[in-house]
Amino acid sequence: MKIHLVTGKGGVGKSAVAAALAYRCAQDGQKTLLAELGDESFYQDYLGLKPLREGQTVRSPLGFDVALWSGASCLREYALYLLKVESLYKLFFENPVSRTLIQVAPALSELAIMGKVTSGPPRNVGPKLDYDAIVVDAYATGHFLALLKAPIGMIEAVRVGPMAEQSKGILKILRDPQITNYHLVCLPEELPVQESLELDREIQALVNVKPYLWLNKLIDFPKSLKAQGPEYEKDFFLKQQRQDSTQATIEAAFKGRWSSLPFVFEADETKIVAALAKGVKR
């Protein structure tokens, strides 16, 4: 049982890489779930799926399941599991006041999502998720760190009771490198590289697991490029230089725990995912 959490700066291709990882796992014969977070699906259009609403799971033609998890849907599921009595559950969730309360109570929905994410391995809390691999297209940097901090903050705020126990269980799984893998997606450009270096440090400080980095959209430039020449060649030359220097920065910080993924010259998303899936084998 593996959990793959995929994050990175906005716009670096997180969702494409997450889908590629899921596709790869499915191709390797693993029962795979690709989970996206939020209350509206991105993959529905991206992978051409049947309508996907929060709390639902649909099958992708690429051979894995896709689920959309929101704070509300995760909490509802968890509550039903814990309260057991349907009428009590209804009383709670159909009360408009408590429904709003759940929506806005600080950290509750982040915690519920992390509870769901970590419910695959045996933990004796929450309904069990039966997959060999769960790939989570998690949020971008800042919001992702908020997700990781939710159980840690909760343990600090509340030391006893089910909330504290639940948080400790979540954290144990997030800190187990045998179960949870962190994937940072990055581009060979200055800003995403800087953000990845910071994110790498923060994740290690929070969970003490070393993330793996995917340097996405690496262009295979011809070797013979010159600084002079037509406009396009000058542009390629500059890009190549920038690409080389970012690779050196990445190598220094991520020695042995990064790979590159090629720039895919396709406008069709399924083709991009299929091409990336070949690259994410490690």
Binding site: Y89, S98, R159, G161, P162
Partner: peptide, 13 residues
């Protein structure tokens, strides 16, 4: 309702 909330989250929360 509060009992349910307590069961879910604990009294300290």
């Amino acid at each position: 309702v509060i009992k349910a909330l307590e069961k879910l989250t604990g009294s300290e929360f």
